[in-house]
Each structure stands twice: as structure tokens, then as C-alpha cells.
Amino acid sequence: MTASQDNVSIVTGKAGTRPVAATPGAIASLAVLALLVACPFFLKNFHIFQLNLMLVYAIAIMGLNLLTGFNGQFSLGHGAFYAIGAYTTAILMDQYDIAYFWTLPVAGIVCFVAGFLFGLPALRLENIYLALATFALAVATPQMLKLSVLEHWTGGVQGIVIFKPDAPFGLPLNQDQWLYFFTLAVGLLLYWAARNLIRSRAGRALMAIRDNPLAARSMGINVSLYKALAFGVSAFFTGIAGALAAIVIQFVAPDSFTLVLSVALLVGLVVGGVGWLPGAVVGGAFIVFVPNIAEEISKGLSGAMYGVILILLIYLMPTGAGGLIRTVTDRLRRR
């Protein structure tokens, strides 16, 4: 089930051999996009659902990538923002009957604020200390969600069940197809936003901070502000992913947002390629499909199989899919 993943490398390979060399990257992206758009018309609903989850995780990883890949801050706690986004949507839909698409911006903004506020104290922490702080955030999330004081809104340990929306305007799509395209559209919009952000002045400032904070400071960049903003923006993306996840899965509960989720996002980020935005799709595919493959190989040892596959992947591409593609295209170009 690594269709999209294979596709990336195959297409890139072909494009690279042609002397045209116009923009192999663009051709590859278009091919992947075409494939993503076409998929729902050939697959069973269940597979559409899986691909949908893949896209959701991809959006979350994209958010994490903005923080880690482009600003050099490390987070083991992005599951927390994912959870906040999911709960925002679920509570708005469940208690206030707000339409699902309006909940996304709200979830994003709530997460932006949460991320920014978390980013402020986290500024003073570096490397391992930041890792611990975010780790703590991930561990604390399910416990906060279970809190009896908040039970009225969060449904406590029982979680919240929400309804799945139908396709609007009488489109001839079933619920899964519609949601898939909805997620895809949101994902593309966010991808476009992320790309522009990175290429902007602010994006260059973020990267300057990553590469050398002291030099960046001496160039007049407000390091603290940018770092906190990076946290906020990153949380914004991840929060929207969480909101989409709530709609797609139709259920939120504290047990959906444990440390395992944060770790999975980190693994997806590294497998996809740190600092390479499209890698998010590869990372998302990894999160959704690799555990299933591991389970196919051995039920009792699925955890071990997962670990072995992960190690092999890192051997194969120590800098993730992004790094692999970069190496391959560089070689082809030099030829």
C-alpha cells in the first residue's frame, strides 16, 4: 500500500532522465496529485478512509515539519495540539451544532494560541530540555482530557461521538469520498500556505534561527518572537489535522491522543524527510500502513516487525524520503 510513495520515486526517476529537466519536481508533484484525486473513484470506501487518514496525518506532520524542519525546534508533544484541535471540533459540533467546516478555523486558531503560549516558556529551553517539556505535554494531554471538572464538555473518559457530514450541493459522492476531497482540499491549501510562508521573509528568519540562533539575533531577528510564532503556526496546522481526524473518525476520546500519537508523528516526520514539506505524505502513509504490514508479517511480533521495518528504512534513507529523492535526483542530474 505504498502506492504514493513508489510513485514519487518512479516519477522523479523518469522525469530526471529526460534532458528537458524543466521541473521534474513539478511533474512529480502533479503526478502525485493526479493520483490522489483519482484514487477515490477506484477504491473501496474503506481504502478511501485509510487514504483520508493518511492525508490527515500528513497535515499534522507538515505542521511539525514547520517547527522542527524549518525552525530547528524539537517536539515530542504534537499529539497534544492534535488533541486540542480534535476536541475543539468535537465539542463545537456536539454541544453547539456548528457545521463541521466552520470548526476547522476555530480549531486552528485555538491551537495557534495554545502553541504560542506553550512556545513562550519553551523558548528558554533547548534540545533535551525542550524534548522533556514537550514530552511532558504529550503525557499530560490524556489526563487533562479525562479531568472530571471538564467532563461536561469533554465527555470524560467516554469521549464524544459526532456525526459524519454528507456531500453538499447534491454532489454524487458518498460520505467517505466527500470527506476525502474535503481533506485533500484543506491539505493543499495548507501546503500552499506553508510553502509561501517558508519562502517569505518570515520563513527565512525561521531558518536563520535554526541554522545559527546567535547570528540570527545579531542580524536583528527577534528570535524569541519568531520561535514562539513558529510553535503557534505549527500547532495551527496540527490542530486542523486533529479537527479533520475528529470528523473523519467521528469519535474523540482521551485514549486516542496518548504519547503513541506524538511519537508516531515524529517518526512520520523523519521517514518523510525533515525540512521537506511533501515528505509529509510519505510520513502519513508510514503511520497508516506500516503497522498493518507489520501485523500481516507476524501478529505476536508486530511491534518487533514495525521496529525492524523502521530501522531498515532509516538505513535505506538516513535523512528520510526527502533526502533519498534529493540524492537520487542529484546523481541523475550529474550524469
Binding site: V263, L266, V267, V270, S302, M305, L310, I314
Partner: peptide, 22 residues
């Protein structure tokens, strides 16, 4: 993978975690 980035190392730690636990 001694020359791989730190994050790749962390991911391998996670992989080892899964392997030993399982």
C-alpha cells in the same frame, strides 16, 4: 548510521523500543 541526523537516531531508539517490548 553514525552520520545520520540526530532525529534519525531518535527514530531508531523508538524502533528499538518497539522491538524489545514486543
Amino acid at each position: 548510521i553514525e552520520n545520520a541526523p540526530v532525529l534519525s537516531h531518535i527514530v531508531v531508539f523508538i524502533a528499538l523500543f518497539a522491538i524489545f517490548n514486543s
